[in-house]
């Protein structure tokens, strides 16, 4: 078999047998070390690697390999994204809301045979949608704190919200809180004593987040 680089002129460090020849060809280093060095952006600088022509050859090879890996991944992802949507449908058609239904929150009815409930999952959905109907607000996590299964028990609600930069956060939080109270009183019989809203600015994510908390 003809090869572009004859086997006897091949770069010794890429030889498959053992690490001795590898280290001998790489100024005492291994391919694994060089690969980790690249992972860390060649920092902190190691003159033992940077000043070795053999290491430089190997590093260039590794970089070339990574470029090829990246373009291979891009090609594969491109192919996948051209598929029709049926795989998404088959996933979504096979999951059930039950997994996140949460606790059952009672609703009153005069008949002794009636047991009417709204699920915690539905209540979280109400809170999310209430936020989604407002401009420039994203509602994230919603937590119902307290024993929601016992009618009349005071509970509180914690909501994480992301707003777009430049918004008046206290004003928005106040509007959201009022809208949530209104929705909760319409669709549930929960006795909500507080809605704590934690606001993050979209731009400051994920590092900093302003905490705007206010009880009503």
């Amino acid at each position: 078999m003809t090869e572009l680089t004859p086997a006897n002129r091949r770069f010794l460090a890429f030889d498959l047998d053992g690490t001795e020849r590898e280290q001998a060809g790489l100024n005492g280093h291994t391919i694994e070390q060089l690969s980790d060095y690249l992972d860390h952006g060649r920092l902190p600088a190691d003159p033992g690697i940077d000043d070795s022509p053999d290491c430089e050859i190997a590093l260039r090879g590794l970089e070339r390999l990574r470029r090829a890996q990246r373009s291979l991944l891009e090609r594969d992802l491109e192919r996948e994204s051209r598929r029709d949507d049926s795989w998404v449908s088959s996933i979504l058609n096979n999951i059930t809301l039950e997994a996140h239904a949460g606790r059952e929150i009672p609703l009153t009815h005069p008949s002794p045979t009636a047991r009417l409930v709204v699920t915690e999952g539905a209540v979280r959905g109400i809170l999310r949608e209430t936020g989604d109907r407002m401009q420039n607000v994203f509602v994230g996590r919603c937590v119902l704190v307290g024993d929601v299964s016992v009618p009349g028990t005071p509970i509180s609600i914690r909501v994480d919200v992301t707003v777009f930069p430049g918004e008046n956060i206290p004003l928005l939080a106040d509007q959201l809180r009022h809208a949530m109270y209104a929705a909760l009183s319409k669709y549930t019989e929960l006795v909500v004593v507080a809605i704590d809203i934690t606001v993050s600015d979209l731009q400051s994510l994920p590092e900093a987040s302003a905490h705007e908390q206010e009880n009503q």
Partner: peptide, 27 residues
């Protein structure tokens, strides 16, 4: 079972992973 909605551009498409995971965790 969940239903696939018609694919429309939603503000959620641009949302950060954290937000999406938090919301998905809530159902």
């Amino acid at each position: 079972p969940g239903r696939v909605r018609e694919q429309v551009a939603s503000p959620l498409d641009a949302a950060a992973d954290q937000m999406l995971a938090d919301r998905a965790r809530d159902g």
